[in-house]
């Protein structure tokens, strides 16, 4: 317990770092994941703008990157990270790798949720003279909003999990804090404090996601 009190500044710093990494990843990964997911949905056979070439490329790329375990991915991505971020270490380097890994996962979640939108309402939009972009923006996304929010909520929890590996590239966060000051220093109280905060954070996110989704679904 004394160790935890002593480590309080580091603890809150780690919490802030986790919050930062999760938010930034959700922002960038979420945005690009949405774009790729819309691309998958739009170009698939029978989609709004079927395009076998683009669809195949997207699928192959996603299927190539998705199975790579994140801890290896974050290392393998180092050259690209250095080229884009300017450094291979630190929270921003971790966010870069997290965003890319998350984007591919999010793309699949977006695709999965969009295909559940009834083809009938899409057809109704076409019959009214709406173009593909308008249909995506004003029909498909609003119709799938509830499940999309739940999908993104699921992703946030997964991102929290992945941020624990940021320490490998010199990043911080609660996961690394629990490892460094808790596990390795034989301070279970410190470790559990970090775990507890992560659990609280995840609960909050899930609660918020459920609430928003219920609002979107009106049930």
């Amino acid at each position: 317990m004394d160790a935890l009190i002593e480590l309080q500044p580091e603890f809150w710093k780690a919490a802030a770092e986790t919050l930062y990494m999760v938010s930034a990843t959700l922002l960038f990964g979420g945005f690009f994941g949405l774009l790729i997911g819309l691309g998958l949905y739009t170009t698939r056979a029978g989609g709004l703008l079927p395009n076998k070439t683009i669809s195949t490329i997207l699928n192959v790329v996603i299927n190539f990157f998705r199975p790579i375990p994140f801890i290896i991915f974050i290392a393998a991505l180092q050259p690209l990270t250095r080229a884009v971020i300017g450094t291979g270490i630190g929270n921003n380097a971790a966010v870069f790798a997290l965003s890319i890994a998350a984007a591919f996962g999010i793309a699949r979640i977006v695709e999965q949720n969009l295909v559940t939108v009834s083809p009938g309402v899409v057809e109704a939009g076409r019959a009214m003279g709406a173009g593909p972009v308008r249909i995506l923006r004003t029909i498909v996304i609003p119709e799938a909003l509830g499940p999309l929010i739940l999908g993104y909520t699921f992703v946030v929890v997964a991102i929290v999990d992945m941020t624990a590996m940021a320490g490998f590239v010199g990043g911080g966060g609660l996961g690394y804090f629990a490892q460094l000051y808790g596990h390795r220093q034989f301070e279970p109280v410190v470790m559990w404090a970090a775990i507890l905060l992560i659990v609280v954070f995840v609960q909050l996110v899930q609660w918020l996601g459920n609430r928003l989704a219920r609002k979107a679904l009106r049930r």
């Binding site: 009834s118 109704a124 019959a127 609003p142």
Partner: peptide, 14 residues
């Protein structure tokens, strides 16, 4: 050209 459908195809989110 208007169109109506068997399953109505209303926008449920609207």
């Amino acid at each position: 050209i208007g169109m109506i459908f068997q399953q109505f195809n209303l926008f449920n989110a609207k």
